[in-house]
Simulated scan of single mutants.
Amino acid sequence: MKKILVTGSNGLLGQKLTERILAQNDFELIATSKGANRYTTKEGYTYASMDIADRESVEEVINTYLPDVVINTAAMTNVDTCEIEKDLCWQLNVTAVANLIAACAPHHIQLIHLSTDFIFDGADGPYLEDAEPNPLSYYGESKLAAEKLLEESNIHWTILRTIIVYGIVNDMSRSNIVLWAKGALEKGAPINVVDDQWRMPTLAEDLAEICLLAAAKGAQGIYNASGKDMMSIVELVEQVADFYQLDKSLIQSISTASLDQTAKRPVKTGFILDKSINELGYQPHSFLEGLKIMDQQISARKTN
């Protein structure tokens, strides 16, 4: 049984990985995050506090547990905050990866790293794995820099690029677009949503699954790891409204330019998933299927 260490285990993807590993019992899990463990179940795995930005903390934990695989889900992902707090962004998105590479190298540990569609400028999506990156934001620059560190290293590395991850767990540090849209529309609040950006939203369960497929198969290289449905952001929100039978007249279409955001966003990203499907056996859900899965989890939480 492979031993997997997950960074950022308190986050959405981190908790989904814990949930999936505990349910299937096919890996030994060491969950790590900065501070206390926020996952509901405390048994069946090991939890260790680890600060990925601190080289000594990373090396101490990895040297103690000697995992076969590290899955790095930890990152600073707020695009506008990254544009403002560049030093912190670099520390969490690049220095942290350098720390993990240094700790994994002596033990021949596979490092699976989560990256993003924001390494592209959105002029020519959807993208293959070997498309030429051209980030528009500091967040995108930091994630591309981390990819380059991995590619130039001599460790066993895997990069999984994803897009707009959505889902629900018990203790969430931040929301996501599906929960935000649902919550606002349920309150009857009008919302402004951009109609000139296109993405392929990713169910957190699907992303957790491809992480573990990459671990089980010892995959090497870059893989696209998004949902399979391309849609504009306003279409995404309208589908949430339709699913929950909420008032779509509250959704106001606006242009990206009118938001005057700190960081630039790519217009149309999206990924071609053939490599992940053929080599890893990745089978992402449709967006509607994802909403159904999420809704079942929301209902289950209400009854518990």
Rank of each mutant, 00 (worst) to 15 (best):
K2D: 11
N93V: 08
L13I: 15
L111N: 05
A204E: 09
N78C: 02
E209T: 15
N304T: 05
P201I: 12
K217G: 13
I84N: 13
T77D: 00
L213Y: 01
D87P: 00
Q220L: 14
A131S: 13
A215H: 13
S137E: 03
M230H: 05
L66N: 05
G11D: 12
V94S: 01
G183R: 10
I254Q: 11
G281A: 10
S173L: 09
A96S: 14
D247A: 08
L29W: 00
G227P: 11
I62G: 04
T256I: 14
A263W: 07
D196Q: 01
Q239I: 03
L203A: 07
E235M: 09
E151I: 02
Q239C: 14
T81V: 15
T262P: 12
V234G: 01
Q91N: 13
L144H: 06
G140W: 06
I177R: 04
M230L: 15
Y47L: 09
G35W: 01
Q283T: 15
V6I: 15
G290L: 14
T269Q: 04
A216P: 00
Q297I: 08
K268N: 12
N63P: 06
I222H: 02
S137F: 07
T41S: 14
G140I: 03
V94L: 05
F287M: 07
K302N: 14
V169Q: 04
L179T: 12
A215S: 14
Y223E: 10
P201Q: 11
K228C: 14
S57M: 02
S286V: 08
I254H: 10
T73K: 05
S153E: 13
N37A: 02
Q220M: 13
I233M: 13
L111I: 05
L66R: 12
P190F: 02
E60S: 10
D242W: 03
G35P: 07
N224D: 07
N78T: 04
D87L: 11
F243Q: 09
G188F: 15
W90R: 06
A48Q: 04
I62W: 01
I168C: 05
G167E: 05
E28V: 09
K228E: 09
I210C: 11
G227K: 07
C89L: 12
E186A: 14
D68A: 10
D260R: 10
N224Y: 12
Q297C: 01
E28T: 13
L207C: 04
E235G: 13
I84D: 13
D80Y: 08
R301I: 09
S255L: 02
A215Y: 11
K16Q: 06
